[in-house]
């Protein structure tokens, strides 16, 4: 089987591409970086890769809200290639700003939620908008915060999380708009019942916490979700910033781990892409 290929989507304000590349390369993937302008001109490029990554950053400065301008660009210009990519079995990972983009396109929690939660907009533009079931909005603390958090890997059928359900991991968060909110309780329950919650903020003993362990006030401590297929994953915390044991904030107290917590996710993705 050939080396799995990762396409790293970059645009103005992307800034976590280097560490995302590092983590995937450490997991054995080949990583190609492409600017969204180039991908718009040649959307077929997407089909050449098994894994698509939307790294963190401040795409277009998050000037109209986190991820909004890039989400708009994807919906308007890349909707079809993205849909096909997911349908034919590709993996997509959105970290931090990438997660915000995926939620604001409607790719997360997925197409079935869009169809279920509203009608076509009056102007007949894309259904990805107007009917969005969820958002990532300003932290309850009302400010950008950088801190390490404990997360519980939830039970799901996502290939990213295969074999790790129930595990507690430590990743950093660094965002100002990471509070996961759904349009109503019903949608939230549906996401939970469908096994689409990927990560929850928790205390070191695994319980559901308040601030600051839940750093942004997300509903039900949700830190990351997948789409209906489990192949599209988005999360606010940064697994790629815990790809080396000495990145952990307390390694001088607790010792260096054999493998950094974030690596399982990248390795799982690479293994899945290899088998696909």
């Amino acid at each position: 089987m050939s080396q799995p290929s990762v396409l790293l989507l970059r645009t103005a304000g992307t800034n976590c591409d280097e560490e995302a590349r590092f983590a995937f390369e450490q997991a054995g993937a080949k990583v190609t970086s492409v600017h969204v302008r180039a991908l718009c001109e040649n959307p077929k490029e997407l089909a050449q890769h098994g894994i698509l990554v939307l790294p963190g950053g401040f795409s277009y400065g998050d000037d109209l809200g986190s991820g909004v301008v890039l989400a708009n660009e994807i919906v308007q210009r890349l909707e079809e290639p993205f849909r096909q990519f997911v349908e034919r079995g590709g993996l997509a990972l959105g970290i931090c700003n990438g997660f915000q983009v995926l939620v604001k396109t409607g790719l997360l929690p997925g197409p079935s939620y869009r169809a279920a939660s509203g009608n076509l907009s009056p102007a007949g533009t894309s259904i990805m908008y107007t009917t969005l079931p969820a958002t990532l909005t300003f932290n309850d603390s009302q400010r950008f915060e950088d801190r390490w958090v404990t997360l519980r890997v939830e039970k799901s059928h996502s290939p990213f999380l295969d074999g790790h359900a129930g595990r507690l991991v430590t990743f950093p968060v660094a965002h100002g708009e990471g509070k996961f909110v759904t349009r109503d309780e019903h949608l939230l329950k549906r996401i939970e019942h469908a096994g689409q919650v990927a990560f929850r903020y928790c205390t070191s003993t695994g319980a559901l916490p308040g601030y600051p362990e839940n750093p942004n006030g997300s509903q039900h401590g949700i830190a990351g979700i997948t789409d209906e297929t489990g192949r599209v994953l988005g999360l606010m915390p940064h697994p790629e910033r815990h790809a080396l044991p000495w990145q952990h904030p307390r390694w001088t107290r607790e010792g260096l781990k054999a493998e950094a917590d974030g690596m399982f996710l990248f390795k799982n993705a690479v293994a899945f892409a290899k088998g696909a």
């Binding site: 976590c16 280097e18 560490e19 400010r143 950008f144 950088d146 660094a174 000495w246």
Partner: peptide
């Protein structure tokens, strides 16, 4: 300090 991203780029030990 918390308002500054001191982890981006993954270099901070």
């Amino acid at each position: 300090i918390r308002q500054y991203d001191h982890e981006v780029q993954g270099r901070t030990v």
